[in-house]
């Protein structure tokens, strides 16, 4: 308990047990808040879901009305001695309950075949993952070596970085039409958008990381006779590797943000297209289920990469 209070001090210490308590709370607290708003009828619930239309013509079972409008209708009808409509307090359609979202989520996996041209959540998601994967792999294959070289070779940096800086400020969507014109309408332009969105940042971020390597280590290596490719591969690369790895984790998250653009060009596809469609039909439980899937997949990957880093970089003091 003492350490739990110290975790609340500025730059305080957090020990193992309070760390796990906080981790569990981090997941539970938002869920509790969401459940409370969804299941406690006296919290928010600004609308009425009609269960019995009564004598009112324009009402139907399943319709949602604002409380005030509903109350007015009821008053008027009572005054006229008509049969009053019945309803229960409800939240707007864009806030489904956790239960609904969970069942949509489970349904997506137990009942995976979507109807007609519609794809199911897993199908759409798998397609998205492939786009991200190839986009990120291609971007990294160019961006990592180029970034490291820019960081280590001042001449190259001066040649390359100005134009990279120029392209970095062009929003990736601006390349959408161009990508489709050049690469066709299927997956190629989508991958290209991810590459364009990631690559330029990647070059700059990684060249910066490379430049930040402790120069004293380079000097020490030089006095030991290291130069050229040996200096690069025996000192620069291993020295920046943990930071490079962290950069890549951040950049992977970056790649995901370009997905929405990528999936709306050419033949629309993937998880973000699925979300757009479902939102149009007001199937917000599906929307939330798909969003949850993206979030869980993202968080899961990042946690996995974090754990992996601890095994890869045992020499880092902070990991020991």
């Amino acid at each position: 308990m003492k350490s739990f209070t110290s975790a609340w001090k500025l730059y305080g210490k957090v020990d193992g047990s309070s760390r796990s308590i906080l981790a569990v709370l981090a997941i539970i607290l938002p869920l509790v808040a969401w459940s409370a708003v969804s299941y406690l009828p006296f919290l928010w619930h600004p609308q009425i879901l009609i269960t019995d239309a009564g004598d009112e013509d324009y009402l139907e079972t399943g319709m949602r009305l604002n409380r005030a409008d509903f109350g007015k209708a009821v008053q008027e009808m009572q005054a006229h001695g008509q049969k009053v409509p019945q309803g229960i307090p409800a939240n707007p359609v864009y806030l489904p309950s956790p239960g609904n979202v969970l069942s949509a989520f489970i349904n997506a996996f137990t009942n995976p075949v979507g109807g007609g041209t519609e794809k199911s959540i897993p199908q759409a998601f798998w397609h998205s993952i492939q786009i991200i994967f190839w986009g990120f792999v291609i971007s990294s294959a160019i961006g990592v070596p180029l970034g490291v070289m820019c960081g280590a070779l001042p001449a190259l940096a001066r040649l390359v970085e100005p134009s990279v800086d120029f392209f970095r400020y062009l929003p990736a969507p601006a390349f959408g039409a161009l990508a489709v014109a050049i690469l066709g309408i299927y997956d190629a332009p989508k991958i290209a958008i991810i590459v364009i969105g990631t690559l330029f940042q990647q070059i700059l971020v990684i060249s910066n990381t490379t430049r930040k390597l402790d120069f004293a280590l380079i000097e020490a290596a030089r006095t030991l006779g290291a130069k050229g490719p040996r200096l690069l591969f025996r000192v620069v690369v291993p020295g920046i590797l943990p930071d490079l790895y962290r950069d890549q984790r951040i950049l992977l998250g970056w790649a995901w943000t370009y997905l929405i653009v990528a999936e709306l060009i050419g033949t629309s596809s993937g998880i973000t297209w699925f979300i757009t469609q479902q939102a149009r039909y007001q199937h917000f439980d599906n929307v939330y289920a798909a969003m949850a899937l993206i979030g869980i997949a993202g968080l899961g990957t990042d946690m996995l990469l974090g754990i992996l880093a601890r095994f890869l970089f045992t020499w880092k003091r902070e990991n020991v």
Partner: peptide, 27 residues
Amino acid sequence: PGPDRGMVFQKYTLFPWLTVCQNVMFG
């Protein structure tokens, strides 16, 4: 710089990603 002149710095400059033995092996 060259291997004919070794240098020991005021700052600690062992390569942190190499073990002690690998550091000595470097040169």
